[in-house]
Each structure stands twice: as structure tokens, then as C-alpha cells.
């Protein structure tokens, strides 16, 4: 079974960077890491391939400036190989542009299953999995908390507002995996060493057969007309508990007349 996992390399959320006021795109001169949201998809893919007894996990990712550090993390976890679409014209890509690029790279792999996170930790549009599926003419199940493969069918528990749905889906299919549903493995030392030599194919947008005008900032067909600090809440009353803080809470709730 061949599983392709979409992974995003993002600035460390602990140091999220800022928008460049000139270009209105994210400043990306920081080291990129594997988006934690995607580590669940990688782990799920590795487990499914293990369960199937044979097959491999291939990664697809896109960046403006051939960053690979996040990809290497996923390779160190156990993915076999990767496609990296690296092109400066990808800077400022929106969800649809991203999906167009990833879908092209995925199609070349002829996978049985495509996995992704439900949304990235930095852009969090949550539309890319459905867009990839539509571009590839595939069925999709988003927000999966459990996946099992039986023959040529994926059985998925899909998270809903109220609980979950059991969903059956013929393969090939696109499935997005919610965070926290599996425990992503830590790369072993052996894995980290092996990852250095795993094949990463680097492609430009034109090599994929796409027009650079349809991706990146140009392809997003959007204009940012304003960037402003969000209104800040007024500072509140902060007290140290001396054993009677609960009384202050009760009084506060009383003032609000909610008791």
C-alpha cells in the first residue's frame, strides 16, 4: 500500500514570526519545522503501512525556498521518500493554490491513500484536503479520528459536532487526520541518520506542469487591504491566593448576578 502524506513546514509556533508590511506575506527567514498537526498524519500512515504488511509512505510538501528541515523530521520518523516543490513563486499561496500544487505532486505518486492534517497550525484554513480530493476526483473523509483499511475500503471514524460518524470510503481517497488521535513517534537516532540519505525529489512549479501565475500570491487573487493589531482587553484585577481567593471569585460572580 502506498500512502502519500501532505506535510507543511512552518515557522516554530513558539516564534511565529510576523507579516512583512511590504509584501504582506509571512516573513519566512526562520528555520522551518514539521507542523505538529501533520505529525499525526505521518504517524497514522506509518501505522497503516505496518498493518498492511507492505508498502511505503511518501511525503509531499511545498516551500518557497527549498527548506527541508521539517521534511527530514518526517523522514526520520519512517517515511521512505519525499517530493518537495520548491519555488519562490509559491510565496503567498492561498489554500486553493496550495492544493493545486500538492494535487499535481500527489497524482504522480499514484497512491492508494492520501493523508493530511485537518488544518495547518499557522494558516488553519482547513480546506486543502477537500480541495486536493476535488482536484484529483477522489472521495474524501475529513476530520478522521480512526482509520482502518479493509481491502480497498477505508473505514473511518469521522469527528462530528455531536460525536462521530462511521464512514466507509473506497480507495484511493483523501483522509484528513485530527490532532491527538495517535501518538507521533519520536525519530530514533538511527532514523535521523537514515533520513539524511532518503530521496527528496525537488521540483519547480513549472516542472509540475503548472503556471506560476496560478499559484502563490498572484494565484490567490486576494488583496490584503489592512493589517491592524486586534483590540486588547483591558487589564483585569490579578490577585495572589492567600487561602481566600475563592471568596473574591464568589463576590465577582455575585456582581455579575449570575448566581
Amino acid at each position: 500500500m502506498k500512502v502519500v502524506v501532505c506535510v507543511k513546514q512552518i515557522p516554530d509556533p513558539a516564534d511565529p514570526g510576523e507579516l512583512d508590511p511590504e509584501t504582506k506575506t509571512l516573513k519566512r527567514d526562520v528555520k522551518l519545522i514539521l507542523d505538529e498537526s501533520d505529525s499525526y498524519g505521518v504517524e497514522m500512515a506509518l501505522q497503516l503501512v505496518d498493518d498492511a504488511g507492505d508498502g511505503e509512505v511518501h511525503l509531499v510538501s511545498m516551500v518557497p525556498k527549498n527548506e527541508v528541515s521539517g521534511l527530514r523530521t518526517a523522514l526520520a520518523m519512517g517515511a521512505a521518500s519525499a517530493t518537495l516543490i520548491s519555488d519562490e513563486c509559491l510565496s503567498g499561496s492561498d489554500a486553493l493554490g496550495t492544493a493545486k500544487v500538492l494535487a499535481k505532486a500527489i497524482a504522480a505518486q499514484e497512491p492508494d491513500l492520501v493523508l493530511s492534517g485537518t488544518e495547518s497550525s499557522d494558516g488553519y484554513t482547513g480546506t486543502v484536503p477537500a480541495q486536493i480530493a476535488e482536484l484529483l476526483g477522489l472521495p474524501s473523509v475529513t476530520f478522521a479520528k480512526e482509520i482502518s483499511i479493509e481491502g480497498s475500503t477505508a473505514k473511518v471514524k469521522r469527528q462530528t459536532e455531536a460525536g462521530y460518524d462511521d464512514v466507509e470510503c473506497p480507495l484511493p481517497a483523501v483522509v484528513s487526520v485530527t490532532a491527538g488521535v495517535v501518538e507521533p513517534r519520536y525519530p530514533s537516532f538511527k532514523g535521523i541518520m537514515a533520513a539524511k540519505n532518503k530521496p527528496v525529489e525537488e521540483l519547480t512549479v513549472e516542472a509540475l506542469g503548472l503556471d506560476p501565475a496560478n499559484v502563490g500570491w498572484a494565484g490567490s487573487r486576494q488583496d490584503i487591504i489592512d493589517i491592524a493589531a486586534a483590540p486588547v482587553r483591558e487589564a483585569g484585577e490579578i490577585i495572589e491566593d492567600e487561602g481566600d481567593a475563592h471568596e473574591r471569585i464568589v463576590a465577582f460572580l455575585d456582581e455579575l448576578k449570575v448566581l
Binding site: 476535488e134 460525536g163 460518524d165 462511521d166
Partner: peptide
């Protein structure tokens, strides 16, 4: 819907 519509809900559970 062709292949794109292949996913089907077989059961629903509420917490």
C-alpha cells in the same frame, strides 16, 4: 458524483 462521492456514512454516534 462519480468517485468523488464515494464516502458514505454508515452509522452516527452522539456523545
Amino acid at each position: 458524483l462519480g468517485a468523488a462521492g464515494g464516502a458514505k456514512i454508515t452509522d452516527s454516534f452522539a456523545e
